[in-house]
Write a protein that binds this DNA or RNA. Sequence first.
DNA 1: GCGTGCTGTGACAATTTCGTCACAGATAAT
DNA 2: ATTATCTGTGACGAAATTGTCACAGCACGC
Lengths: 235, 235
Amino acid sequence: MPAQSPHKDLILVIEDEPDVLDLLRLHLRKEGFSIVEASDGVSGLKLAREKLPSAIVLDLMIPEMRGEDVCRQVRSRATTAGIPVLMLTAKARPEDRIAGLELGADDYLTKPFSPRELALRLRLLIDRSRATGAGDRIRVGPFELDRSSFEVRVKGRKLDLTVLEFKLLVALLEGRGRVLTRETLLRDVWGYRNTSNSRTVDTHVRRLRNKLRPHHERLQTVHGEGYMFRAEEND
Amino acid sequence: MPAQSPHKDLILVIEDEPDVLDLLRLHLRKEGFSIVEASDGVSGLKLAREKLPSAIVLDLMIPEMRGEDVCRQVRSRATTAGIPVLMLTAKARPEDRIAGLELGADDYLTKPFSPRELALRLRLLIDRSRATGAGDRIRVGPFELDRSSFEVRVKGRKLDLTVLEFKLLVALLEGRGRVLTRETLLRDVWGYRNTSNSRTVDTHVRRLRNKLRPHHERLQTVHGEGYMFRAEEND
DNA sequence: GCGTGCTGTGACAATTTCGTCACAGATAAT
DNA sequence: ATTATCTGTGACGAAATTGTCACAGCACGC
């Protein structure tokens, strides 16, 4: 994630309560972060795409677009998918917790929260995100992917993938050695979809396999479970 | 035919305050976890190595060995390095927070904490740990199983098992040395079925035996009772 | 507006998995 | 030894899953 300045991580805060926003601004700046703010989901998402912050603090209950929709949109675009999201939820409502979990929020805090704790958790999230190397380039065996240009090469040969196929391949390669259920792929690649009995994933897997030939054999079907990119020793 | 395994995640709680321990035990069990407890660092570490829990809840201030030393030891051994550690710290002491960060604790909570929040964070940690493929492997003698990929190897040779056969083998290996009745296996591997006189288990045991050859002899029939995977010394 | 490519859906065929049955062999009790 | 029950085995068919295709709707560029 590109920092706004050499020594400060940029945090996008999406929160509509002015007193919470004030508190967050004060404390995050004191903790050495740089802030950009939005009080509704639409402008928050716009800022996420423009500014590419180091992390997002996202209230689940905001106007115009629910926090979960913002999170889904952030995850559904390759350039913002890796941004850690810390979700602020109302006090321990079960549906809020489940939404946070299902949307793959990286962390959450329930209101009221300690600003100091929030800052520390942000630091953890950012450091962890950096440690897992969510860089632009992915290389796995003969496959080389560039997130910023959506380019894919196999043994130096350029493939012509659509954006969706690219994201599917990224998901599979990052999860290599593990079975990814159709539901997981729908959530991670398409954003959450609650469409039962969909053949969408299968169709796109087929298309991807055709484009990967003759290197498609590592994209395996696990009957009754989903798909898996087989891990190999020299990946 | 998705089977629901009753596998409960085992949580190791290392905490010396009896009232906190009581609280944790009550709530974690209510949340569906299985618990093992230690009130000092030394026996906590021993349990971590013996039981290989799904996660550890670790108080920083415990007798005999400080929490940070326990954490360091857990991380320093390959078999336990991947276990997520949720550290309990005193209220917002800066040196506690720094210690947690430096030791790479996966998460932390400051006392007093909400037991519900702790359970939820444990669930997050475990799911995330699974998602990154850490520690979802079973090794028993020559058998190596990977839950993430449903792969089975015997002495390095890959076997081609169906998902159901995989789950049956997991159940048998986890219960090695004990007789598992057909009813138990139907419940644990298939989800509960109330089909009397069914030969389903027998059929699948037969198929599994055929696939395990020549290592099938440890999968034994106990006449009139059920099946047992014989335990051996070097498992 | 038109053409093209992308994407998702539904239908159908192919494949895999699973459970049941019939029968033979093994085991335990009498 | 006999009998009843249990277990192993091969075969078969049903059900579920997956691969494939055609087509329609949508988005985008010209």
